[in-house]
């Protein structure tokens, strides 16, 4: 199939450049519109997901008692952690704390549920960019690796136990993906240390503040 001659104006450099620029502009516009149209629904979906994540790591029965907007933000070791308190009879019985660490493909965000003594009730990975099929074993749906953290605390696991077995610690790593489990162990350890340092505030039911759009992310919103 022969390609016929293009009209002369299409053979000029200025045309190619303008074409590419125009297409880029149109595509950007389409994306901005798309973003605006979907932003609210995506936010709602994330809130719902956040409530479910909190429910998974605290003794809450379902998401009914969870108020994702009432958070306690603590600063520890240069990082911010967002926490939600589980209240029963006016007392804080459990705390869900977000934490993160740099994994292989990017930041891994984890939520840890702790009881009053700082013992882990459960941990769940919220977000990650790890390799599918390898690093994604940290997800609760894919394997029960994350269940190994249940019952652990700073009291029953020494400081150098908080590492993968390869690094002399007590936690299993999976073949072919050491960096990922290492990051998750580090993140959870950080959460425990943060809890220990700010325990009084975290267990005080009056410490929570209302946020309009809590995201549980480390770059916490301010308002």
């Amino acid at each position: 199939m022969s390609t016929p001659e293009r009209p002369s104006y299409q053979q000029r450099t200025a045309y190619h450049v303008t074409l590419l620029g125009t297409v880029a502009l149109l595509c950007s516009t389409a994306l901005v519109i798309g973003d605006q149209q979907t932003r609210e629904r995506i936010e709602t979906a994330r809130q719902r997901q956040l409530s479910e994540d909190i429910a998974e790591v605290t003794p809450a029965s379902g998401t009914a008692g969870i108020a994702p907007q009432r958070t306690v933000t603590i600063q520890h070791d240069g990082r911010a952690h967002t926490a939600w308190q589980h209240l029963a009879g006016g007392r804080v019985t459990a705390v869900a704390l977000t934490t993160s660490a740099q994994g292989y493909g990017g930041e891994i965000r984890v939520i840890v549920g702790l009881d009053r003594q700082g013992e882990i009730l459960a941990a769940r990975v919220l977000e990650h960019q790890e390799t599918p099929g390898l690093g994604d074993q940290i997800e609760a749906e894919r394997s029960d690796w994350i269940d190994a953290f249940e019952g652990r605390s700073l009291a029953n696991t020494p400081p150098d136990g908080w590492a993968v077995e390869k690094d002399g610690g007590e936690f299993d790593q999976f073949t072919g993906a050491t960096i990922t489990p290492r990051a998750v162990v580090e993140a959870i350890h950080t959460a425990l240390l943060a809890f220990q340092a700010h325990r009084a505030r975290l267990l005080d039911p009056r410490a929570a503040e209302r946020h309009a759009h809590p995201t549980g992310s480390e770059e916490a919103d301010h308002g």
């Binding site: 595509c27 389409a30 798309g34 979907t38």
Partner: peptide, 19 residues
Amino acid sequence: LLIATLVTLVDMFMEAYLN
């Protein structure tokens, strides 16, 4: 550019409506 824009729009749509 065109294909990537379409895929991104699909991605946004799915995150919003088929979460």
